[in-house]
Design a protein around this nucleic acid. Sequence first.
DNA 1: CTATTTCGCATACCGACGGTATGTCAATTG
DNA 2: CAATTGACATACCGTCGGTATGCGAAATAG
Lengths: 190, 190
Amino acid sequence: MRAEQKERTRLALIAEARRLFAERGYADVGLTEITAAAGVTKGALYHQFDGKAALFRAVLESVHQEVGGHVAAAAEAEADLWTGFAAGCQAFLTASTDPTRRRILLVDGPAVLGWAEWRAFDEAASAFHLEEAVAGLMRAGLLPERPTAPLTRLLSGAMNEAALWLASEPSALDDTRRALTELLESLRCR
Amino acid sequence: MRAEQKERTRLALIAEARRLFAERGYADVGLTEITAAAGVTKGALYHQFDGKAALFRAVLESVHQEVGGHVAAAAEAEADLWTGFAAGCQAFLTASTDPTRRRILLVDGPAVLGWAEWRAFDEAASAFHLEEAVAGLMRAGLLPERPTAPLTRLLSGAMNEAALWLASEPSALDDTRRALTELLESLRCR
DNA sequence: CTATTTCGCATACCGACGGTATGTCAATTG
DNA sequence: CAATTGACATACCGTCGGTATGCGAAATAG
């Protein structure tokens, strides 16, 4: 079938683009290199995507879905609401630190798509879980009742930055996980 | 004097580049437009800087210095150690939200220079104050004794993200300032 | 089983961009 | 005042993202 062939090309382009973007960054990778790695030509790329930014968007989407999946899985594996929340945060930290995701997700993402669009993706994936969790914890009396959005942004940013930092200081992993746990605990209602 | 002329050209290029980068982002502004706005040609630019990225580096440096100055001024205006810390954080939030700084500092900065180099700039300016403050608060017994670096990164990231978010939700300013204050207070030793 | 259409993709090409090599002229210096 | 420096302009190059067009195989109709 032709549709299968089309999908194969799409997936190959996304996979190779993701690999190269993760290694060297969006700006330093040309379409020629991506298409060559995927075994097609620029014509194929422009048949599948609206341009370089659109290809990046597709890559970012796959990254976001993976991260969101890890976060949700870790959170749901815990019975307790608070424990699930903490586990989700740690899972987010781990998933975002992964070198196949970090740069695409946290560095190039906002710059290429603009922060507003990047945030829309973030919201649809991992940040959605985070804000839902925050809201749930407030309802359960585990966090003080406040507007959820600002706290969610603060927490999201803290974890994003920590993930980037861990890339350059991998030995600080344990300390960082502890610091994150303590930060969350300090917010908890007693 | 010739040196004065050189400095004038440098400053004009930095000023115009900053304005344009802040408005439309690094990738969408060509050197032709920058040099035209500064009243010189590309030759002058390449005489002063090693390239587009080097010009951006100079721009980022000026932004960082401004932010660092605001943070330090706000912190030193308070007599109390903790109050100065909190004021510095709020000042950082305000200074980073400014549209002439936000995009350059928080979005394009990491993408253009790479996160590692961006962080070196951050460290030299505002993050230095932050980590010093955290260390001082631990010595004074106002924060639990822990490794300073992870907590500093978490706080820095939280404020960065909040600043970006405020750009799209300016009405949330008060809520966000409160949320930041409460976050800091919750960390404080009692 | 051919004729025709469809569509995934390759090829060839364009304008614009970042970057470089070279030229020029005023300010400095001895 | 001759020689030199250096701040800058001009002209040019290679490469990139993007577009227009054509081809050939698979799907579909008669």
